[in-house]
Design a protein around this nucleic acid. Structure first.
Lengths: 250, 250
DNA sequence: CGGCTGCTTGAAATGAGTCAACATAGGTGG
DNA sequence: CCACCTATGTTGACTCATTTCAAGCAGCCG
């Protein structure tokens, strides 16, 4: 099945299609040969079940595949020379991973499973061959890469300009909307990562996350039961995220 | 001339080739038709001279072109809903801009000339057509996009994990090596941006940059004459950048 | 020459980090 | 099945890096 290669956060896509097939749809206008479609299908069908904490790909290793999350969740991170780690993202079903190394280079980040996950492996050389035959696939690839870059820009802005309150509110809002895009509840969900992962991702200390979550709870923005989060004041949450009001104003 | 489309920071490229033609070289193996080469040449030959503070492209506008800096320097930045701006990068001759929107979408950042600059405009639709004819070009494009993503990851790590000293040291080191790649001196150069631009880029306050530059001068890491910077202790600079020692240890 | 903009410097304020102690949950083994 | 052990998360007190506010300075342009 080709359905794991979707475009995440697809702003223009019909939401109801959910985690499926937009890549294939884009390819259709170019009148794919039957054999090509089979090839795409074949390329995407290689799956692997990973357990929690299993490494999917490793920074510095030669890259032969890109990956798509089919089920479960994945954390990606870069490691600096001095050993510092920075979490780059949390990836849900439908997300593509390892896009930084499409030209047979080297992974510039690592990916690790946060829970038991199914991962599709897509050999880069197959992808190159297919792109030549299928201009639609090539364009979709450029689009996904462009989206990744835009998302990184948003992250840079958040890390550089937002205070801790805003960062956590942005984090919850994003996660909520991404669950929504996948057909899950936007107001109640399970965090698949540790507090420590969140802290690292947002460029904050672990303790700060604990305190902030407590604060959000006090202010009745969320209910918390360990990893279970229930957003009870989405409007305020977004206001905080966008800096329109502060936590102590509430 | 095709020479403005190079790959910046090309780790594997022969440094002496400097700001030229690697894109074309990559295309050659695919036995380009004469007309295709002319088309590439044509696509890249549209130039525009921009004055200081002129806007090259604007966030939110529909994207029809990507851009290459031919001479001068460009600053790119994103603007948040609340008006906050985040500088994403400073671009030197040979750098490509606007890569986030290769699939005829919308610019997710803006670009503005820091000095009088020559900018090549490359229509995206021409690029798509060329990519289909020239697999080498397509791969080079993916490569450049991958490099951009990797670079963004490094920025995220820097913003989230480094203290102010490290950030400035990293900034100087990077700028220095990028000047070097273009055949200029690595140890003496003119800053093309204001202190305020640097501060914004590094996620710091303007005053912090002033103080840090003064501090770097005191510690005899650099000499400063307004915008002229002379790095006099490159070794220490890199040590600071990588967190191997701190400023007050010097 | 005056005024403007960009830069520098000092003093005080503060948001987030650090350190340390404690709590809880989940897993493990007796 | 319970008791312990380790992971992970929470809370408080204190520290400190960086920001903020405010004033002054220098180069530059008309």
């Amino acid at each position: 099945m080709v359905c794991c290669l979707i475009d995440k956060d697809d702003r223009s896509a019909d939401k109801s299609r959910c985690a499926s097939c937009s890549l294939v749809e884009l390819c259709l206008p170019s009148a794919l040969a039957e054999e090509d479609l089979l090839m795409l299908d074949e390329a995407i069908s290689k799956r692997k079940i990973m357990q929690k904490a299993d490494e999917i790909f490793h920074q510095g290793n030669e890259s032969r595949c890109i990956y798509a999350v089919r089920s479960g969740a994945v954390r990606t991170y870069t490691t600096a020379k001095n050993g510092d780690e920075q979490t780059l993202g949390f990836h849900l079903p439908g997300d593509l991973l390892g896009l930084d190394c499409l030209d047979n280079k080297i992974h510039s980040c690592s990916g690790v499973a946060l829970t038991t996950s199914t991962i599709c492996q897509i050999p880069i050389k197959d992808l190159h061959v297919l792109c030549i035959k299928m201009p639609g696939l090539q364009r979709q690839l450029l689009r996904v890469l462009g989206d990744e870059i835009s998302k990184d820009y948003t992250m840079l802005l958040m890390l550089a300009r937002c205070n801790a309150d805003q960062k956590l509110a942005i984090f919850f809002s994003n996660l909520s909307s991404r669950f929504g895009q996948r057909g899950f509840s936007t107001c109640e969900f399970e965090l698949m990562m540790s507090r420590s992962d969140i802290a690292n991702y947002l460029g904050l200390a672990d303790e700060t996350i604990s305190r902030l979550i407590a604060r959000f709870k006090d202010k009745k923005l969320i209910q918390v039961q360990r990893k279970n989060i229930k957003i009870i004041d989405e409007v305020r949450m977004i206001q905080i995220a966008e800096g329109e009001c502060t936590l102590d104003q509430i």
